[in-house]
Simulated scan of single mutants.
Amino acid sequence: MRLMPFLLCFIVTLLGCSSPSQPELKPLLAAIGQRLDLAYSVAVHKWDNGLPVEAPAREREVLQQVQAAAHDYGLTRERAAAFFADQIEANKIVQYGLIDRWTALGQRPPQHAQDLAKELRPRLDMLQARLLFELADLDRKPLHDCPRQLTDALARYASDPLRHTALVRATAQLCVER
């Protein structure tokens, strides 16, 4: 009888350790997070230069690039394009949110501005390959109860509401049957 509380505690501890980590999601979420981090610098550039958040020509270019590269990663053109359309929309959520904050304050926080074409886009382009690789890797090992695992992972991955919303948007189609 005295052993029972100890055993229950031990079992609960084991169960707690086995499900919440979502190691399969960590590399992809880390890459998505890096892309969202760059959205801050993109927003600074757009704020400083009076540019709109929307960049339809650039978005088409990115989607064409990932569709062309999809086969190299074992992805369909449609899967790659849908995933990157989500990344683009998530980045716009961050940019709109930040620009709205800065507009309310009347200024943006002090930060060294980076050139969009020469500094930021090359970094975004380099992340494309990593994101495609991680997406393909995740697709090769389907998650049990993917929506629940993704929701749990996102809850732990971002504490800022703007970033959390962007992550939810960026991962909107991860659990879609392929």
Rank of each mutant, 00 (worst) to 15 (best):
L120G: 03
R108W: 11
H71S: 15
V66S: 05
C146R: 14
P110C: 05
F133P: 00
Q65N: 08
Q173M: 09
M126C: 07
Q149R: 15
V53L: 12
H164A: 12
Q22V: 12
G33Y: 01
D72Y: 04
T171R: 00
R156W: 11
A104W: 12
M1Y: 12
T165L: 08
S159Y: 07
L150G: 01
E119P: 02
Y157R: 06
L150H: 01
A153G: 06
R2M: 12
L116K: 08
P122N: 05
A82G: 10
V62A: 01
L162P: 04
F10D: 02
H45K: 00
W47C: 03
Q64E: 10
V62R: 06
G74N: 03
A68C: 06
P110I: 08
P147T: 09
Y157L: 05
R58P: 00
W47F: 15
G50P: 06
I88T: 06
L138I: 03
P27I: 11
A104L: 15
T165M: 07
L28K: 01
D37P: 01
D48K: 09
Q107I: 04
V53C: 05
A82V: 13
A153D: 04
Q111R: 11
P142V: 13
Y157T: 09
A80W: 08
K26M: 07
L131N: 00
H45R: 03
D115V: 00
V94P: 00
A166C: 08
P5T: 12
P147Y: 12
T151S: 03
L174E: 04
P5Q: 13
A82N: 13
F10L: 15
T151P: 00
A90W: 02
D152K: 08
A113H: 11
P147M: 14
P27W: 07
E24A: 13
W47S: 03
I93F: 04
P23S: 09
G74Q: 05
R121C: 06
D115T: 02
I32A: 01
A117R: 10
S19N: 09
A158E: 11
L116N: 00
A158K: 02
C17D: 06
Q128C: 05
R156G: 08
H45A: 04
R148E: 10
C175I: 02
A81D: 12
Q67N: 10
L131M: 09
F133N: 04
V94T: 13
A170C: 13
L132H: 04
A57D: 13
L7K: 13
Y96N: 10
S41Q: 07
I93W: 05
F6W: 14
A43K: 07
S21K: 04
R108D: 02
P122T: 14
P142E: 14
L138G: 05
R156L: 06
L131E: 00
F10N: 01
N91S: 13
L167V: 14
R178Y: 07
Q128S: 10
T151M: 03
L25A: 04
D37E: 11
D37S: 07
G50M: 07
A172R: 11
L7W: 15
C175S: 03
K46R: 14
L38I: 14
N91F: 01
E78T: 14
V42D: 00
A82C: 09
L63S: 04
L174M: 05
K141F: 11
A166S: 05
R178N: 10
A170F: 10
V66Q: 10
G106W: 15
